[in-house]
Amino acid sequence: MMLSFSKIGFVARAELHDALRSRRFVLMLALYILGAGGACFGLITALHRVEVELSNALGLTAAASPGAVADALWQSVTFQRMVRELVGNEQVGQELLGVAPIALIYGWLAFTFTPILILLSTPSRIAEEVASGYARFSVVRVTRTEWCLGKYLGQALEVMIPLLLSAVSAWGVARFRLQSLAGADVIGAMLMYGLKVWVYCMAFVGLGLGVSQVCRSPNQAVVLALLLWTGLSIIRGASQWVSAPIWKQVLDSVSVFAPATQRLDMWRTNPVYYVPAMIYSITLGLVYFSLGHWCFLRKDL
């Protein structure tokens, strides 16, 4: 079957265009920007309070702007050892210590909340058009595969916009409140994390759209996607605790399909680790999408 890339592009463009005009996207954008900016603001404010209290306790004059203690803390050997132990991986811990704290905060927020937001919005996309009958106007003009791939591409692009804008928002807040820790290199690191989170989320977009192709009801699709994600996350978590070799093997095998599998490698700054993780996430997304699409090709619309 020959695919028309121009038609896939038309569908993707329409998907993105529709998304940009929808209330859902505006809400998502607001959540990303305010969430990232607000979280940075809150953290820096808390940090400043700690600094002030610490200075008062020591009988020193507190700095007017936050960051002095954080800077010192970041450089301390004890703190660095603590970070490495918290991360659970010497190498990753060491790499993270080379990244600006604000970029790490942004990265943590983006890695944690973007998948949830994606799984709340993406699974309904195809299901709602099938439910309303709108899909019928499209699938007499393009193949189902072209239509679904266009949706995938459109959704992927839709995720990128709030991610990058939220990085800028978080950096803007940090720049305003924490000048010493928000230079030009920090925005670079934040945008890099934004890009990594975007690629990492391709697995979630694939999961969402895969489920969306199977379900007839948009709400059912969202619930199913969240259940699948939760189930796979539990299996992944359990695989680290189970000691029986057979069960561990089974759980390890299943947990390779968990969309969050590559998260740790995505944190790393060395491309030797994060590039394969990116490829894995994209592939995993395409696997989910393809499984759903296999059903969609056989489905009555």
Binding site: D18, R21, S22, S132, G133, Y134, R136, F137, V140
Partner: peptide, 13 residues
């Protein structure tokens, strides 16, 4: 080939 489905609706926006 074109179809006018009976109950299909367009997105309101």
């Amino acid at each position: 080939v074109a179809v006018m489905p009976q109950d299909a609706i367009f997105p309101s926006y």
